[in-house]
Design a protein around this nucleic acid. Structure first.
Length: 157
DNA sequence: TTACCTTTGAAGCAG
DNA sequence: CTGCTTCAAAGGTAA
């Protein structure tokens, strides 16, 4: 198999090469975006990432490394979309979860190993980074539930 | 335009 | 340490 991957090689392969040593002149504001989501960093048409930098949301927001299942989803999502006549990610993800649980441990280990490498790579790419950087950033209704829970606790106290 | 929905796993947080 | 909560992807859908 030369490259079952759609785009060619795994997104982390070219980065593993760099992981051997310190990265070339990093502009600190732009730390190796090749990892994933280049669109979140620089838009070719926009080109002016200066404005988007501080005002709204930092373009260089470092996200969590993908776990084994997320990596499995990344690879299988397109295929499943073609198999079934469905486009909603919620439905697709439900199917992916079903297939993931049907995989043997040996088959899953492939993705667990890949996820571990991603974590190590992430550690090298962003030393000092913590998942708490993005913790509570999403606006979710769960926040209200947590808030309500707090209120209940306070009332009891 | 944004959050929701949905999955598993990792990790943060609270007690 | 135990258990609960949030985020990671992602795309149609609802508000």
């Amino acid at each position: 198999m030369n490259g079952p991957e759609l785009s060619g090689v795994h997104p982390l392969v070219p980065l593993l090469i760099y992981s051997d040593r310190q990265f070339p002149p990093t502009t600190e504001s732009q730390p190796i975006t090749a990892h994933r989501e280049p669109q979140a960093d620089i838009h070719p048409r926009t080109h002016s990432c200066i404005q988007v930098n501080n005002t709204h949301r930092p373009a260089g927001t470092v996200k969590k490394p993908l776990n084994a299942f997320m990596l499995y989803m990344k690879e299988m999502r397109a295929a499943v979309r073609q198999e079934v006549h469905e486009r909603e990610s919620a439905t697709i993800n439900r199917i992916l979860g079903r297939r993931w649980n049907a995989l043997s441990r040996a088959e899953q280990s492939k993705y667990f190993d890949l996820a571990q490498k991603e974590r190590l790579l992430h550690l090298q790419l962003y030393p000092g980074w913590s998942a708490r950087d993005n913790y509570g950033k999403r606006k979710r209704k769960d926040n209200q539930r947590k808030f309500t829970l707090k209120i209940s606790t306070s009332l009891e106290t």
